[in-house]
Design a protein around this nucleic acid. Structure first.
Lengths: 183, 183
DNA sequence: AAGGGTTGTGCGTTATAGCATACAATGGCA
DNA sequence: TGCCATTGTATGCTATAACGCACAACCCTT
């Protein structure tokens, strides 16, 4: 049993308990059988990457959460979990869904200090982001990446991701979404 | 096959090649059989956490190396590198052609007074335009349509079309092109 | 107490990760 | 040209990840 498996066992049970989920509930949310979830929590099984991926998606958390040493987890309130004051993200469809291209395009405004964490979409969804105004950050693979005006990013939406604006000016970006249907 | 497995496959082969290691050598260093390493590289197998742990230890790299997405950033255009004043239309690719989506994205600057009329492209090409900066006009169906900042237009490029900027300020727009191959 | 719902764990089966080995495709080097 | 070393892939087998189901312990009500 590797140290990493112990970390996963610890974090899985802790996160599940924090949310008040039963093994049954967790099995439904993640698509992993509750028997397997129990074995992983008890450290009796070393999950495959595919299974671990289902789990982190079910919890809507990045991979890094399950890989960190337990004592690192106990940091206090993280700023991204604080409620954003007043303002909301403004999503405006520029082009509605195009069945032929399987594509739709939004323009999205992020007020200062706003943060949005998204659950993974279904599989086969590709997002393109291009910053139009200001500076924003995109959460991917457990890290926030900063994008200046004019910068872009391409990623598979079938994973936890998010957007935020840590500046004092409004940020604005185009969001081009393709549904490949290859899930 | 999950996106994560694809990332692992990509990074494993890339890292191995960078070090000039054969599968045999890698098997010795990591304690994972070369047959399994080959399958992981080809994406034919989803390794367990225990196996992945052996691999990252053999390479003496952190887990995060194998989880990051390859080619996330597509060297997007630096807006400051665009000529602030010019006499010609400035076309800059943000995302190169994506064979899977049959899509490419440009950012285009129109200096004041500039006008561009295009002959019809081949059939099956759909263009989306979204104005990012200033105001521009698009020629379609024998008429010029005015687009304010934030406005967009969708059309089939298989017809005469054009862009112009009749204002005194620079205009800038995103151009998203799909090649449906239905010509 | 007795019943019904929920919780986590144990059991038998299936799918597949992982191994050792053999094989085929390359690339020198005599 | 032939030989040998090295590369990555294919094969057969074993270990185990993963599943569905059943079970036992523990709430509740009534």
């Amino acid at each position: 049993m590797t140290p990493v498996s112990k970390n996963i066992a610890y974090h899985l049970k802790k996160l599940r308990k924090e949310l008040g989920w039963s093994l049954d509930r967790t099995a439904q949310e993640t698509g992993v059988s509750k028997a397997m979830l129990g074995q992983i929590e008890r450290g009796e099984s070393s999950p495959t990457i595919a299974t671990l991926w289902k789990i982190v998606n079910g919890f809507h958390v990045p991979f890094s959460v399950f890989l960190e040493e337990p004592h690192l987890l106990h940091n206090p309130t993280e700023p991204e979990h604080l409620p954003s004051v007043g303002s909301k993200m403004y999503v405006n469809p520029i082009f509605p869904f195009d069945p032929e291209l399987k594509c739709e395009i939004f323009i999205i405004q992020l007020p200062p200090g706003y943060e949005q964490l998204s659950a993974p979409h279904e599989s086969g969804i590709i997002e393109h982001i291009v910053v139009v105004e200001g500076t924003m950050e995109v959460f991917l693979q457990g890290a926030w990446k900063t994008l200046q005006k004019g910068k872009g990013l391409r990623f598979d939406a079938h994973q936890p991701h998010g957007y935020r604006n840590t500046t004092s000016r409004i940020a604005c970006f185009h969001n081009i979404i393709h549904y490949t249907g290859k899930g």
